[in-house]
Design a protein around this nucleic acid. Sequence first.
DNA 1: TGACGATGTATCGGCGCGATACATCGCGTG
DNA 2: CACGCGATGTATCGCGCCGATACATCGTCA
Lengths: 199, 199
Amino acid sequence: MLELAILGLLCETPMHGYELRKELTTKLGAFRAAISYGTLYPTLRRLRLAGLISELADDDSAAGAPPLTSRRGRVVYKITAEGKERLTALLACTGPETYDDEGFGVHFAFFARTDRATRLRILEGRRRRIEERREGLRDVLGRAAERLDTYTLALQRHGLDACEREVRWLEELIAHERSGLPQPTDHTPPGDSRSGRQP
Amino acid sequence: MLELAILGLLCETPMHGYELRKELTTKLGAFRAAISYGTLYPTLRRLRLAGLISELADDDSAAGAPPLTSRRGRVVYKITAEGKERLTALLACTGPETYDDEGFGVHFAFFARTDRATRLRILEGRRRRIEERREGLRDVLGRAAERLDTYTLALQRHGLDACEREVRWLEELIAHERSGLPQPTDHTPPGDSRSGRQP
DNA sequence: TGACGATGTATCGGCGCGATACATCGCGTG
DNA sequence: CACGCGATGTATCGCGCCGATACATCGTCA
């Protein structure tokens, strides 16, 4: 999941770890709290060893004195060709984990790079998942309400409300996708996500 | 976190793992998906080794033929005295992890065993946490809106809406706590969670 | 009789988190 | 000028939790 997010961001522009974390936080801030460095750096290492990203030592590496105080410079990461292939594959492939909170958030955040058919598939899968959760909550509130205390009931009701709202939100998005209108501020070429254009 | 949930449930009645998972799912279903056995059983083992719960071999253990087909019977778990102490400590202690989705859900689900002061502290801490998330989203939507594509914006707006709703929900709960009304269906003795009464 | 789904216990690899450590840089203040 | 302090920046470690997997029992319906 994080792999997808990193590749997606690095596809827009090269970055170093700290920057990456900030972008990750603003882009995914609606669904998850904040990515930990204890996750980020090992993942970057993994992606580098897999050949999906490459380092690109920045600024003063060519300048005068590199090992004066054993300088640990910033490491700028850049996506590779294999990385771009992997990204398009990950964006198109939909497993069960695509529909839980985490996975859906990441996929949705990169919808601008996804074709319309996949967008619809993901939105409908998410809707189905949330509807299941909603039905579970309705069952509990209907059948087992007297077994539960006031607070647990309040929690269930709040969860049910959140589910209903999200389903409505998804319905709107699905209707909009079906209507076939292009997005106004879409700045990737529609229909093909690896066609050209890497500045 | 899971430790708290298990102790809380076992405090009501002894159970075996499978049952525990089902109860856990209905009680916490609003906030988290479903607890995995790969989490549950190691945690039970840990709690048992720590002396917080004890096994209690059920049904046919005293009957005729135990090792006929090397029967692996159900294991019923029961909370110990140390476990109850630990539970009251966990319910009262509030760290930063008490206020994120997971931790708040668990604490809230056992509010019936928590005294009013702690309830208020947790509700207000949660509100503060959500307000921070809300401000972060407002900042992004205000300052960096033109940098983001339509989908990311839609995600942020939906997240912002969810935050505002949760804050309102928390306000209501806080007001209700402050009003001092007792909960109608509260079936634990108020004010003291380890006073007596274990049937 | 035998297949199937629900019940039930358990392990394993791996991901993600919080805590922690360490180094550099710009800036304001004494 | 020196000094600290917060922001920037890279990195590791232990551990909680997850999904996948395996295996055993029970009731039931064909």
